[in-house]
Design a protein around this nucleic acid. Structure first.
Lengths: 156, 156
DNA sequence: TATGAAATGGATTGGCC
DNA sequence: GGCCAATCCATTTCATA
């Protein structure tokens, strides 16, 4: 992870479909060298994959919500994690400190669809307690890391 | 937005660096047709961009938190939104229903860095109240939309 | 690990349906 | 809107440092 790698990550964060030659010239290396570095970043697991940012509303997803979850019995944990894995509407699942155990980010078609995910999906487990926070409007949503301070000793 | 476009989005969500010919053959079109469709999806705003998924911990970001924010006076709103825009550590900002006004997702180097973002960043505004929830572990984090039910009438 | 040149293969353009 | 064919350009490989 030197400054070339940082530039590569920054470039790919801005446009993952950039050609190797664009990538290479923008960071000041030859194409083979840039491609080699990207392959190594992939092998190290620093680059986990490439994706596309789709406007959720333009494809019919009008409802975003955060669902805080508490499991009333510890035995539920593995069932819960499996359920989360299967529910495509659950985009994120974080184990959190505080009053609740997990925080989920859920993306649905509308509130009726959210009801389905919560009532037929999550609540299909017994001893699960939820608190849902509806998102009224999303003002910022970036998958980019700050990348101001990359720790070089990591990822080697 | 017909079934070809849906397949394109699904393919790009899985690997945005796929070549045109891979993309084309996987959806059953010729390369120029596939490239045309992607260009149209970009023009319509359905595709907002392409990105790379970087492992946060492997580049030194060990702390994720959700910060709920309440603004005590409505006049703060524009200053707050400008601040959010500038703070690179704030990856997401959602206007929410409920006890708090906004929910932020924040990605930092460590808890000390989180303290800096909250104390010197957010709290630099007067009348702002926050409640921070630390993420202990992230079990799922995908930027993919479910895309099970694309509304064809939208995005035309 | 980087470079440069050669060979390969994919992307783009234009004509046509 | 899509296909095919031809041109053009990017990627990959290999030899070298």
């Amino acid at each position: 992870m030197d400054s070339y790698d940082e530039k590569i990550l920054r470039m790919l964060m801005a446009n993952a479909r950039a050609t190797w030659s664009d990538l290479a010239s923008s960071i000041g290396l030859s194409s083979p060298a840039a491609a080699d570095r990207v392959r190594r970043l992939e092998e190290k697991g620093i680059i986990k994959g490439y994706g596309v940012a789709v406007d959720p509303e333009l494809v019919g997803y009008f409802c975003t919500a955060f669902v805080a979850v508490t499991l009333e019995r510890a035995e539920l944990r593995s069932d819960f994690l499996h359920l989360i894995d299967c529910l495509k509407e659950v985009q994120e699942c974080h184990h959190i400190a505080g009053d609740y155990d997990y925080l989920l980010k859920v993306r649905c078609i509308n509130t009726k669809d959210l009801d389905r995910v919560i009532s037929s999906g999550l609540k299909s487990l017994p001893g699960i307690r939820t608190r849902t926070t509806i998102v009224l409007n999303t003002l910022k949503e970036s998958t980019r890391l700050p990348l101001d301070q990359v720790h070089p000793e990591k990822g080697e």
